[in-house]
């Protein structure tokens, strides 16, 4: 099953560049070619940002597989990104709720 992902950025900022770099590393490592990534610059396409209710940038949206999730930030914390993608469960909290 392919991951459908959308990344919202604002302009060619340093944060934007870092976010793309961090995200690509994570995706290549964990999903190799099992994903489609659509990059949207909110300056060029504010309507798309409106449609998806984006406030903060960078924002990654996982459209598929469900559930729909958003990860905001420059993706420097790869654990959180992997949790957002549903590739790992998130540490203790997750387990304690199960027991």
């Amino acid at each position: 099953m392919k991951y459908l992902l959308k990344l919202f950025l604002t302009g060619q900022s340093e944060t934007s560049r870092r976010a793309v770099e961090n995200l690509k590393t994570i995706l290549e490592t964990h999903l190799s070619d099992q994903y489609e990534l659509d990059i949207v610059d909110t300056l060029d396409d504010p309507e798309s940002a409106t449609a998806d209710g984006i406030i903060a940038t960078p924002t990654l949206i996982k459209d598929l597989p469900p559930p729909l999730r958003k990860v905001i930030g420059d993706f420097s914390d790869s654990e959180k990104v992997l949790f957002g993608l549903g590739l790992v469960a998130l540490d203790e909290d997750q387990e304690t709720t199960d027991t």
């Binding site: 604002t10 504010p46 409106t50 209710g53 984006i54 406030i55 729909l68 993706f75």
Partner: peptide, 29 residues
């Protein structure tokens, strides 16, 4: 309207630094 109200049922995870670039772009638009 610029709808920046919380989206019900959508989980948001924070990973690092972010800004309100999208919001500002939407308001300007």
């Amino acid at each position: 309207f610029v709808d920046a109200s919380p989206q019900i049922g959508v989980e948001t995870i924070v990973s690092g630094e972010y800004d309100f670039g999208a919001l500002i772009a939407r308001v300007e638009h």
